[in-house]
Structure formats: C-alpha cells, structure tokens
Design a protein around this nucleic acid. Structure first.
Lengths: 168, 168
DNA sequence: TCTTTCTTTCAAATATTTTTGAAACTTCGA
DNA sequence: TCGAAGTTTCAAAAATATTTGAAAGAAAGA
C-alpha cells in the first residue's frame, strides 16, 4: 500500500472511531493527521489536506489543544502557528482518561451523592430499588475513579508489566 | 428529595452521560428507568414515563437487548412483554466493555495490521513517522485488548482488590 | 377463519450537531 | 499609525441523527 493511501485510510478510520467516543469526526481526523505527520503542520496545511474550512480547522484545533492532545509550535522565522500531536499513545490515552474523568465521571459521582437519600419509607420496594441502584453505581464510580487515578499516575512499562503479570 | 423527582433527575443525567459514550439519549434513559424500577415495565409504561413514541421505545429497547443490558420478561397471564435491566453495575460495565471491544477495538486492530507496512524507503521520515505511529497504536491496542479481556473475566472483588494492592 | 392485542417497520418530520465563510479582530513590522 | 498576514468568531447553511406515527405484521384465543 502507498503511504498516501494508508494515511488517508488511517485518518478516515480514526475519525469514525472517534465519533463513537464523543469526539467529533473532524477533531479526530485532525488528530490523526498530526499523529502521522513527521513535522508540525500549519492551519493551512491541515485545511488543505482534510479539505475543511478555516473556521472548522481553527475550532477543532483549539479543542484538541484544550484536551492537551495537540501543541502549538512557534517556528523560528515563521509568523504562522504550527501544530503537533504527542505521538506517544500511552500518554495520549492517559490524557484522554484524565479529561473525561474530570468532565464526566466526577460530576456523575457528585450527582449520585445528592440522589442517595430520598424521602420515604426505606422498606418500600420502589424506594429500595432506587437507593440500591444509586449506591451501587456510586460505589462502582468511586472504584473506577480510584483505578483511573492510579492509571494516570502509573508509568507505562511499570503499569503494564505488572498488570500483565497479575493476570497471567 | 422526593422519589419521583430523584428518579427524573437520574434518568435525565444518565441520558446526558450516555450521549458522551456513543449511546443515544433515549436508549440511556430507558436503561436508567429500568435500573431504578423495582418491577419489570411494559413498552407502554416506558413510553408513558419517558413521553416517547412507540417506535422510538421499541427501537431502543431492542438495541438495549442487543447490547445485553436489558432482558425481555414474560409474565404469567400477561400477553404483553415486559422488560428489566440487570441492576448489578459491575456486570453492566463488563457487558458494555465486551460489546465495545468487539465493535470498535477489534476492528481497529485489524485495520492497523493492514496499515503497518507501507511501500517506500524505511528511512524516509514521513514513512517512518507513519509506521512508527501505527506500530505504537497497535501495540497499545493489543495491550488494551488483553487487559479488557481479563477485566471481563475477572470477578468484581478479586479484580479490584488486587488492582488496589498493586497500586498502594 | 376472524378479531383483538401487541410488536415491528420505515418514510417523513424534527431536532441536533457540525461546517462554512465572511467579517471582525490581533499581531507585528515598517 | 498603517497595512499585511494570520487568527478567531459566529450566524446561517448543510449534514447527521433521532423521533414520530401510521401501516403492516404476528400471535393467540374464540
């Protein structure tokens, strides 16, 4: 397979993949493009390669920077900004976990806290079904939260090597 | 807080939460409703409580059944079908991981396999950037695949207890 | 077989999300 | 301060995804 074709296919697939994960297609495609580019790219190069508008490129690049997945690079002698993505997938995964934990898991746990005690007879089966489920989810959420924290802190090899040993 | 109000809030939040995870809002809301209902519900009860159409209810219930998150129940003396959700969140999480692994991670790994060798000079920096990234992602994907397999097989306490010990 | 009750389907309508592109804004050197 | 080069914004348009509801289909009892 030719390089250009392989790149195209990777970008398209990464885009589709991302869209199942709450990340929009263009954002995932820009990320994919930067992942497979040897050098940093300018906004114009990104626009051209993905055939997207300036506004769209700008918006999604900014969002990728917010997520900590892309960095702005200033090249000497260049007025324009260039962009680059961290190529280390383990760091990328940790970064995504960190952000989603903050944006989704933590608010959910906070909500469950508020919902765990409802008025009414604790023996009523409807009250019981509700509070049981809330406690169950909260317990699970707290465990997940801790586990992810540790994953974020862990070093790549140390984490994986030990996890593998544990499960062999 | 009153039970009805708490239920409403949980359903709304679970729906919003789900939509960040590639699950549509209604599907997540039906799941939430079944999670907090003491008894199985009929399609009509679901339609009424969530104020959605018959077609919408039917489609999303079917999808939840496909995902293995909801079961069809036949009640004696009742012509209609009833539906119930597994209340054990650990099992729910395992089920979701299992499905998404099959639907998303495995096809991605298969694709990366095809993309790892491209024609051209291995020393060319563009070729190198591409193949390095592909190998990196594939390696990560395979490790994630194994880890998730083990999680799926693991028993709740055993898994978490050991993971906690490992990280202390 | 016929009727009733319940379930499924799917084309059209609605709602939501994403994208465009032109105008406003910013930065920087002359 | 001005103008050129680049960046950001955002309302309107386009693309996608979801929902509706009516019609068709299935199952079961009379």
């Amino acid at each position: 397979m030719k390089l250009a074709e392989a790149k195209q296919q990777f970008i398209a697939s990464w885009g589709a993949f991302g869209s199942h994960w709450g990340i929009n297609r263009t954002m995932a495609q820009i990320h994919a493009l930067l992942l497979v580019s040897a050098d940093p790219l300018s906004a114009d190069e990104i626009m051209e390669q993905l055939e997207i508008s300036r506004g769209n490129a700008n918006m999604n690049i900014r969002e990728l920077i917010n997520w900590g997945l892309v960095d702005r690079i200033l090249m000497q002698g260049e007025r324009r900004e260039f962009f680059t993505a961290d190529k280390d997938i383990w760091r990328v995964a940790k970064q995504i976990v960190k952000e989603r934990k903050k944006r989704e898991l933590e608010p959910m746990i906070k909500l469950l806290d508020q919902l765990t005690d409802v008025e009414g007879d604790k023996k009523d089966k409807d009250v019981k079904a509700f509070t049981d489920t809330m406690q169950n989810i909260k317990k699970f959420g707290l465990q997940a939260d801790k586990t992810l924290d540790m994953m974020i802190k862990a070093e790549e090899n140390w984490f994986l090597t030990n996890l593998m040993k544990l499960f062999k």
